[in-house]
Design a protein around this nucleic acid. Sequence first.
DNA 1: ACAAAAAAATGACCGTGGGTCACTTGGTGA
DNA 2: TCACCAAGTGACCCACGGTCATTTTTTTGT
Lengths: 209, 209
Amino acid sequence: MGVVERKEREKELRSESIIDAAERIFFSKGFEHATMNDVAEEAELSKGALYLYFHSKNELCMAILQRSLLILKNKMTILHDDNILTGIEKFARLARLFIAFAKEYPNHYNSFLSYREHRGNCPATGKVIKGTNEENKKINRIISDIIRMGKADKTINKDIDADKLSLALWGNFTGIMPSSILHDRSSLDYNPEEVIKYHFELLINAIKA
Amino acid sequence: MGVVERKEREKELRSESIIDAAERIFFSKGFEHATMNDVAEEAELSKGALYLYFHSKNELCMAILQRSLLILKNKMTILHDDNILTGIEKFARLARLFIAFAKEYPNHYNSFLSYREHRGNCPATGKVIKGTNEENKKINRIISDIIRMGKADKTINKDIDADKLSLALWGNFTGIMPSSILHDRSSLDYNPEEVIKYHFELLINAIKA
DNA sequence: ACAAAAAAATGACCGTGGGTCACTTGGTGA
DNA sequence: TCACCAAGTGACCCACGGTCATTTTTTTGT
């Protein structure tokens, strides 16, 4: 009988429902002001139970980041697997995709930006940390694949370094918006969306064959 | 008699020496693990006294960020004021300047990346928050000025939008390195330095007249 | 020179919240 | 029916951010 398997499934479900609860609480109160008791109550569990699934508040936060990466990766995979668009067209759509993600999941997008603090407070050997590393790697792989497609179909300059450019773009995505927030709102003439688009335009101009 | 003035100067000095202490403590222990008692001891003051100068631990952290911005701005001002280099040359040197800053002041560079959390927990009306906004604005002003210089001396395409590109670059700087850190070290073939340089090369290629 | 007043600094104290652990609950298999 | 064990509980511990009545130091007025 599949008791062990069922238990494993249930454990996975519990874990997911805790992350659901944590998202609602963290996103509405912010990391510092949210308490583990809040999360426990929202998840209809005791505080102690949370610690059966996650080692710390920080790790729970990283689990949310892992989800964010997963959502984005799934969006990107669809673009990647399209077989009508050319490489450079896909590359151009990455800009739109990033913007759409940030608009559709603003809280998840935010989770990219505060991950460092949390990450530093989690054991590097943990399952969650490894998961985020994995997703991150896959995302960079998708971007660089798209660039390589462009090189293959001659829509992108063959001398472009796909891996390096992929990292640059990804870094840019996780940094460009916060900069504009630090910038005083009232004096910000351009919204992040325009800035990202413009940046991509320039890059496209630089890399097109 | 200048008693009031002297007091003001002394107050400023105390404030600076508290930030000195906070830097040593925060940089060595990390924000979460550092305590206000640690900072007080390092600053040779009581905990209560810290709160005469800063409203909260978060605000103290923002004061460090303000310093980081100031250091970077000073480096950039020198480049900006140079009157031999052409606009595009200055633009190209920005990449080196960013990298040099991140290498010379790695901890200060890090402070850029976790500012969101702290910022959200400070009253927006505070002196420190306003100070960081101010510095940030000046930095963007310097970058866009450099681009404008390039347009004036015809080394940069006149159709480039200086303000937008400035924001894009600044965002990139505050995002590109953390991305590479999230990326699993062992499988990272390029270091952040290479990535920044390459990204700039492409941009230069796109914007040169 | 001295005391009253003001400013600066102190540190005991408070409340909160992350994290723990001895104990309870409830499903499972013999 | 009962022994077992994983799952879950919540009272408890204690570290730490922040406060404030009190003390110490400096300034001001005479």
